[in-house]
């Protein structure tokens, strides 16, 4: 038409390469921002390790768990608590911290500014996945390091256990991120976010075998916990970090990893649907 004709906006979706490249840029920015906020690092990053040290130290005199009754073949309390806190670390990094983080971004104007820029929503989501994955891995390395070097907990020795660990870990991180994005719409404001989200996760930690021995819970409570994902992440982690014979203490007497994969994957799908259908940069109509 004329010389000053501009590039026509292409309706529809931004190109995948651009979404991925900006997802990487968001990850870099988000990880740096995470470690710049000192209080968040203390409370969320160190939380699983701090809890682990408290439990391991507090109950160190109670001897071993799961031995033959004569002080043989058991594992230390520290080793026993490790898988639960690995699981809690993943789910807290994703659901709790991310949910509170995004609710805060919605109320402080971050999302409004991003929503007015050409950043694709997919890149924003990928940035959150990248941030949670990075911080969860760093958190895990610290926890495993403290458990192994300070408390002498033996880590899995076989490649098959580590590959089992890898899929449970990655699937759980993905699930936690989409649930975190989904749950961020629940609080009405950034100020109420902690008050709304923390208790939900606290209850789940108590009934899912993070702080108590899951086998000691009444059956009805085990069934309630079985509906939610944290129980299955914790069970998956026990299958990695505890000796195989501990499987007999589980509800079905096995590690039941097939059900764990289905439940974690199912919650990931639920979270993804909630995230995609409810996420808005700003509330459009008030």
């Amino acid at each position: 038409m004329t010389a000053i004709e501009t590039i026509a906006p292409v309706p529809g979706r931004p190109r995948l390469g651009r979404v991925l490249a900006l997802g990487m840029e968001r990850t870099r920015y988000e990880v740096r921002s995470y470690f710049r906020a000192g209080d968040a690092v203390f409370f969320t990053f160190l939380f699983p390790t701090v809890m682990f040290v408290i439990f391991a130290a507090a109950f160190s005199s109670t001897g071993t768990v799961g031995g033959d009754g004569h002080g043989h073949g058991g594992i230390s309390i520290a080793a026993y608590y490790l898988p639960g806190l690995v699981a809690a670390g993943i789910v807290l990094s994703g659901v709790q911290n991310l949910g509170i983080d995004i609710a805060g971004e919605r109320s402080d104007g971050t999302l409004k500014r991003l929503g007015g820029s050409p950043l694709p929503v997919g890149s924003y989501f990928l940035g959150k996945v990248g941030m949670v994955l990075t911080t969860a891995i760093a958190q895990l390395l610290l926890l495993l390091g403290v458990a192994h070097f300070a408390f002498g907990v033996a880590l899995p020795g076989s490649a098959s256990l580590w590959s089992r660990f890898a899929w449970i870990f990655l699937l759980s991180v993905l699930m936690s991120v989409v649930l975190g994005i989904g749950i961020s719409g629940l609080p009405r404001s950034g100020r109420s976010a902690s008050a709304v989200i923390v208790p939900i996760l606290l209850v789940l930690q108590f009934i899912s075998g993070v702080y108590f021995n899951f086998a000691d819970l009444p059956d009805w409570l085990k069934s309630v916990a079985g509906v939610f994902p944290l129980k299955w992440v914790a069970q998956g982690m026990r299958s990695v970090f505890l000796p195989d014979r501990f499987a007999t203490a589980e509800q079905t007497g096995t590690w039941d990893l097939g059900t764990a994969a289905l439940m974690i994957g199912g919650w990931a799908v639920v979270g993804l649907v909630i995230a995609l259908t409810t996420f808005r940069w700003v509330r459009k109509d008030r």
Binding site: T6, P9, P11, R13, P14, D108, K112, G116, P118, P120
Partner: peptide
């Protein structure tokens, strides 16, 4: 969409 937003500049009230 994002291609349209790429052609805009928005200075919001303070945040």
């Amino acid at each position: 969409g994002v291609d349209w937003k790429a052609r805009l500049g928005i200075v919001l009230q303070s945040s």
